[in-house]
Amino acid sequence: MIDVAWSDFTPWTALAGGLLIGLAAALFLLLNGRIAGISGILGGLLSPSRGDIVWRLAFMAGLIGAPLAWLMVADLPPIEINAGYPSLVIAGLLVGVGTRYGSGCTSGHGVCGLSRLSLRSLVATLSFMAAGFITVYIIRHLLGA
């Protein structure tokens, strides 16, 4: 059965952060009429067309600049990256190809797609969630890494 890691579980900050992510997606949708899908916004920069570049860079600047904005007020919470460099390269390649091929990631399909009750996004979300669960199971419990 499932053992919950109660000492790691952070329900209030998780919910607060989730509401902020939802707010960001809502603002982007209601002000600019677009889906806040990170992989799509980034990937679109690789086949740029006129008038379609600056807003993408602006969104990326906001996202990448968020830790700097945070640091003006408080220390950043820990970021623990235990994967080694070869794993990070393989993971990055798979995430890059996979999100573009499947037209979205955790934000575009997971947050925005489920919010608009898209069956297509639900199928995508179940696909990457299932693959994520299985991969971690294999790495941590079968290979014992």
Partner: peptide
């Protein structure tokens, strides 16, 4: 395409624990 793309993304996500947004934020950090 949707399912194979999602599965590949999920494998990468499970290997490193990064999806695109958090990867970019951690880069900014």
């Amino acid at each position: 395409r949707l399912i194979i793309g999602g599965l590949s993304f999920g494998v990468g996500w499970g290997i490193a624990g990064f999806c695109p947004g958090p990867g970019l934020v951690a880069l900014g950090a």
